[in-house]
Amino acid sequence: MILAFSLAVAVVFGSGVFLVIQRDLLRVVVGIVLISNSASLFIVAAGLTRGAVPIVPLPGGDGASASDPLVQAMALTALIITSSVTALLLSLIYRLYVSHDTMDIEDISVAELREAEALERKNRPEIEENPEKGPAAEELEERSR
């Protein structure tokens, strides 16, 4: 079971990461949810005692026969924290959509690089004399097409 749990944690985590590095904002958030799920799974698995529900009076009579209540409490806390932060993330991506009019990270990255380069050109006029350094934003845009 140790291996099974480890594998499950790894697969959920990996899938989450795969989604986090996608271009679609919504997928990124889904990825974060998966990653946090893997953490909760791991926490509960870490108390892999599979005993009785920790409600007194216990059938075995002592604490050792119950499933670990502390990991459950920890998992609960972690679950609630990550899910509420997900709500924040969702409103963030909505704001990103509103300000950039896109759900595509590539578009947002291009916008970001453009701003950075505009700033650079403003602060260091000498750069414009150096045409070999083409803007990185163009490159990225090309790549994302």
Binding site: L89, H100, E115
Partner: peptide, 18 residues
């Protein structure tokens, strides 16, 4: 809530959640 600030918040949140 300028464009770049929202963007910064998003990057910040994703990386830190990780």
């Amino acid at each position: 809530e300028r464009d770049y600030q929202v963007r910064a918040a998003f990057i910040f949140a994703i990386v830190n959640l990780f």
